[in-house]
């Protein structure tokens, strides 16, 4: 009986601790749970030891340190990442999510924390012209539920066969196996996650970089639940803070030899 009482007591104490821990009102954030995908190198990925790594992860840690809050990462598949935020599985999405009008209807965004162009990749010497005519009959792989998929469907949807994948890695695998002729994604993602790896040795960028605002929006931001204005303000200030202090530039240099913040 004693043991049960002890157990009961500790459960109640845990519940109280949890209740006290959770932010009751604005300005009381002392811990932020961050949702990320963990399958989008070099921005967020799981390394050989099972740890989350990447530009997003480093930025997220730097931002939380700047804000003086504790943090915890939650890994969530991409196509459920916004529903997960709305279901309060985490408080912020730092997963290279582009700020778009469609998404703004469901979530709030901070200011951008980076902005990079989208590009196509094909086999070296494939001689493909990136135009509606040039892409006719080609098969293009793209990650499902991304702005790149929207861009591809709206601009080339009539002339190409589009295959949607759950992760960019799967699209890249099918480019290597020849099931698709091209893939389209963020240039930095393709560079770090594919072209610079052994698998991507025989492949190269084709065509220009795309940054059309209609699809690629205002850049990459942190998504928050609607109405979490205090948290949004904290993140915005922290982004400017780490840029002023040079922390951002250090993280930038760790992953890319060009500026990813844009202007």
């Amino acid at each position: 009986m004693k043991q049960f009482q002890k157990l009961f007591l500790s459960i109640i104490m845990m519940a109280i601790a949890l209740a006290l821990n959770s932010p009751v009102s604005a300005g009381e954030w002392d811990k932020v749970r961050i949702g990320t995908e963990g399958a989008y190198p070099p921005f967020n990925y799981v390394d050989k030891d099972g740890n989350l790594q990447g530009f997003d992860i480093d930025i997220a840690k730097a931002l939380c340190e700047e804000m003086g809050v504790k943090y915890e990462f939650v890994v969530q598949d991409w196509d459920g990442i916004i529903p997960g935020l709305m279901a309060k599985k985490y408080d912020a999405i730092i997963a290279s999510m582009s700020i778009t009008e469609e998404r703004k209807q469901k979530v709030d965004f901070t200011e951008k924390y980076y902005l990079t162009p989208a590009r196509f990749v094909a086999k070296k010497g494939a001689d493909i012209e990136i135009s509606t005519e040039g892409l006719k009959g080609k098969t293009v792989g793209v990650q499902r539920a991304t702005i790149h998929e929207n861009f591809l469907r709206d601009n080339f949807g009539k002339s190409v066969d589009i295959k949607s994948y759950a992760t960019q890695d799967e699209a890249n695998m099918d480019l290597v196996s020849g099931r698709v002729d091209l893939v389209i994604a963020d240039a930095t993602v393709l560079l770090g996650g594919f072209l610079e790896t052994d698998a991507g040795a025989g492949y190269a960028f084709v065509g220009p970089g795309f940054t059309d605002k209609e699809w690629f929006g205002e850049g990459i931001g942190i998504a928050l639940r609607k109405g979490d204005d205090a948290l949004r303000k904290m993140f915005n200030e922290a982004i400017q803070g780490i840029r002023k202090k040079g922390i951002y530039q250090k993280i930038n240099a760790k992953y890319f030899d060009f500026d990813v913040y844009g202007d």
């Binding site: 529903p83 469609e102 792989g141 499902r144 539920a145 991304t146 998929e149 949607s164 099918d174």
Partner: peptide, 22 residues
């Protein structure tokens, strides 16, 4: 649908990704 086929589930997933009308 996970290997790119557009069956019923595949269609639902692609459309939901765009509209968020899960």
């Amino acid at each position: 649908s996970i290997i790119t086929l557009m069956d019923i589930t595949g269609v639902a997933r692609v459309l939901a990704a765009r509209t968020f009308a899960f």
